[in-house]
């Protein structure tokens, strides 16, 4: 009887060792994987965040400048332009585009782009900013 229980213990022991090595390996691996994942994710995210921010900030700087240039004029045309420019500034100011988790990121980006195109046409600006508008943005893996 004693020898049977001893060999059972031994068997349990071996199975536990089997688990133990797997679990300890897993723990080490998890740490390394977390480190790698954060770094890799960060490097990818940075490029995406930079691209969209560069585009939207461009629109912002563009609109703000036109606002200051236009606001001294009182004619109807300037007023109409100013109104469109201010509406574009409003859209961008309210838009938390630095947050990749923001639920309306894509939607708001399209809205700002459409507004920008409208502003350009009102200002008779024919400059080609298509570089920006063609940029696609994926927010996850």
């Amino acid at each position: 009887m004693a020898s049977v229980s001893e060999s059972d213990d031994l068997f349990d022991c071996i199975l536990m060792a089997d688990d133990r090595f797997h679990v300890e390996g897993y723990r080490e691996g998890y740490e390394e994987g977390t480190r790698e994942g954060l770094l890799e994710g960060r490097n990818h995210g940075m490029v995406h965040g930079a691209r969209l921010s560069a585009e939207l900030s461009f629109y912002h700087g563009f609109a703000v400048t036109w606002k200051y240039l236009l606001q001294t004029n009182v004619d109807a045309k300037s007023k109409k332009r100013l109104k469109a420019v201010e509406s574009l500034i409003g859209l961008i100011s309210k838009f938390p585009f630095e947050d990749s988790q923001y639920e309306n990121l894509q939607e708001d980006t399209e809205r700002v782009r459409a507004k920008f195109r409208q502003v350009c046409s009102l200002l008779n600006v024919t400059a080609d900013f298509r570089d920006y508008v063609s940029g696609s943005a994926t927010m996850s893996f």
Partner: peptide, 12 residues
């Protein structure tokens, strides 16, 4: 994804 979100904000 956590890394992506952090990097995204930094880049922006």
């Amino acid at each position: 994804q956590i890394g992506f979100n952090m990097g995204y904000r930094e880049g922006a």
